[in-house]
């Protein structure tokens, strides 16, 4: 890397990442955003200090994400202090300003004088095929671990359950009750729902597939009547769920 190629490369990466983060679709935004928040500010900072300090490779690997995180915190505070909202554009612009500022500062601080010690690799490891294969195998195993753990968590739904709910609704010409039943059991289920509003009784029988919701809006005769809903899960669970809307007082309160 020549003396000027570093800043130029960073500036080019910055422009590309900015465009991708603001305008590109989701898959491209991810690497662009990661670069903007976790890499480029730190890279520009380490580039800027190289005129005065000697940094070894491990230090650069640590300082790049570390200083990037710090920069993001400080940039966020400054944007807020400037009474600007923290949007995609303001984040992108602020990070760009900081990165370019650091690159300019690096130019002023003087020439690069760093010497980076390089670990000489033995013949065994110098052939890249073996370490690459080892790393790839390890990454595959880690990916497998993630899939396994995610499967475990997603499939842990416990015993399965059903939700029943009801609310008074005041939209429309007549008083009504909005109700819903959601099936989170392990499969389809047959339900019987009994609704008692004052002296009126209504019964609904229905089947719901797993993950599906039944929604109804049921008019009731008197807006002040108490309403009781009892859900049975057939064939065994009578009074499986119940909700109750307390009768309203004359002033409209319950």
């Amino acid at each position: 890397m020549t003396r000027t190629a570093g800043p130029l490369t960073i500036a080019s990466a910055l422009v590309a990442a900015e465009i991708a983060a603001v305008f590109a679709p989701m898959p491209l935004r991810v690497p662009a955003g990661l670069l903007l928040v976790l890499v480029l500010p730190g890279l520009a900072a380490t580039q800027a200090v190289r005129g005065r300090l000697t940094l070894e490779r491990t230090e650069v690997i640590m300082l790049v994400p570390g200083l990037s995180l710090v920069t993001s915190v400080l940039v966020g505070l400054l944007v807020y202090a400037a009474h600007l909202r923290l949007t995609t554009v303001s984040w992108g612009l602020a990070i760009a300003v900081v990165v370019l500022g650091l690159l300019a500062l690096g130019g002023r601080l003087g020439e690069r004088t760093d010497v980076r010690p390089r670990v000489r690799l033995s013949g065994w490891i110098r052939s890249r095929a073996v370490p690459v294969a080892v790393i790839l195998c390890s990454l595959a195993m880690i990916a497998g671990a993630l899939v396994l753990a995610a499967y475990g968590e997603r499939s842990a739904t416990g015993g399965g359950f059903t939700e029943l709910w009801a609310l008074r609704t005041h939209t429309g010409p007549t008083p009504a009750v909005a109700l819903g039943v959601t099936n989170h059991e392990h499969g389809s289920a047959h339900y019987r729902l009994q609704i008692v509003a004052g002296r009126a009784i209504k019964v609904l029988s229905f089947e719901l597939a797993r993950g599906r919701t039944l929604r109804r809006r049921l008019p009731i005769g008197n807006a002040r009547d108490g309403v009781t809903l009892t859900l049975s899960k057939l064939p065994h669970h009578l009074d499986y769920r119940h909700v109750r809307l307390a009768p309203l007082e004359a002033d409209g309160s319950q």
Binding site: R120, W124, I125, C137, S138, G144, A145, G152
Partner: peptide, 27 residues
């Protein structure tokens, strides 16, 4: 330089296997 290189590299897949074991334990 060069000593223990196979051992040093081996810790990466061994750790990955450890993570697989932990994931299986979680499951």
């Amino acid at each position: 330089v060069g000593t223990n290189v196979p051992v040093a590299l081996a810790i990466v897949p061994l750790a990955a296997m450890g993570l697989l074991a932990v994931a299986a334990a979680d499951l």
